[in-house]
Design a protein around this nucleic acid. Structure first.
Lengths: 199, 199
DNA sequence: ACCTGAACACCGTTCAAGT
DNA sequence: ACCTGAACACCGTTCAAGT
């Protein structure tokens, strides 16, 4: 009745389980041994499907980013479009414990394609325009770096507070949302005079 | 002749050695056992001077930030002042291998004071004005998050390239300096209409 | 006060050998 | 093709005991 469980998607099962385990226990406790136990298998078995822990984490990062849904703002205002894309990415990172750190540590190795970068670059393109606007890609890279830095910091702070750190209010970090919104707004506004809005 | 080496600065010696070791071998290979060997001591001896590895890394991060020298631009242009402060911080992070990652992972636990944040906030203050401009602190926080995200990514990429990754040119990352300069410029320009320059 | 020795409870990864 | 068993070379941290 049940289809053969021994299908060719064993690797997907590993990544899925790793993502769930990450969310449960955090990056520090996501070990190959613990993951193997979760899958009722010896640790060494994992290395038949995956070259190394780092490769596994890269696959997990891809999965986290797969989840990004940009709220499809057809707004003519560049600020709104950038904000929507940036929020989509941030929320995907926040959806799993230590998601931002996993993606950050993995994005550096991603030489060519980056889904996150593409989304931001698309939001920054004048959209009446053509293909690869170089200035838009540079601005998109800067925005991505802000989003990753911001979210990593916020997520680490959440985790630190939860098992005993300090007052969640008084700091220069204020409300995280306010810093995030300000950062995106500043980046977008700084850009406006360059990619001229037709007034 | 030589003053007693058994002074009360043993903890400083540990931090200094840890920083040097970090620069030599990188964060992944900076272990308590290796650090102990460097100091000709048993690993357990370190725990008399330091509560945990995390506390040690926080001290190392402070040391990295101590090094920041802001080029003292008395420029009236907000963009120049912010750029000078941001460069000072970035260069301090780049001065040691994995410096950005160490500071990033440590900045989250820093509830109150942050030297880096203070420097950026000072650069953003209208300077004819008074003390704690709240909007400036929020913008400074956003700028710090960009600098940390940017530098962590760039530094990881440097390290990845050095032992076999990919073409250092063609990507959406372009020249790192260009992305950094663009990010800072956008943040500063976005801010200008708010903290009004006296024209 | 400061350090050693020994242990506890772990890691990631490799590789012969099994089925 | 896919997994087990056993090993290698490590980790951070604790704690009695020494000096």
């Amino acid at each position: 009745m049940t289809p053969p469980r021994t299908g060719r998607h064993d690797r997907d099962r590993i990544v899925t389980t790793a993502l769930a385990l990450l969310d449960e226990v955090g990056l520090a406790d996501l070990t190959m041994r613990r993951l193997a136990a979760e899958l009722d298998v010896q640790p060494s078995a994992l290395y038949w499907h995956v070259r190394s822990k780092q490769e596994l984490l890269a696959a997990v990062a891809d999965r986290i980013l797969d989840r990004v849904r940009v709220p499809d703002t057809r707004s003519p205002a560049l600020e709104d479009r950038l904000h929507a894309a940036a929020r989509g990415i941030r929320d995907a990172l926040l959806a799993y414990r230590d998601g931002a750190e996993v993606v950050l540590s993995t994005e550096a190795l991603r030489l060519g394609s980056s889904r996150a970068l593409d989304l931001l670059a698309a939001a920054l393109r004048p959209d009446d325009g053509d293909g690869a606007d170089e200035e838009a890609v540079v601005a998109a890279a800067a925005t991505l770096q802000f989003v990753l830095g911001h979210t990593t910091l916020v997520q680490q702070r959440m985790h630190a507070e939860s098992h005993g750190a300090a007052a969640p209010e008084d700091l220069g970090d204020a409300a995280p949302d306010r810093v995030f919104d300000t950062g995106i707004r500043l980046l977008a506004r700084g850009l406006s005079p360059v990619s001229g809005r037709r007034a």
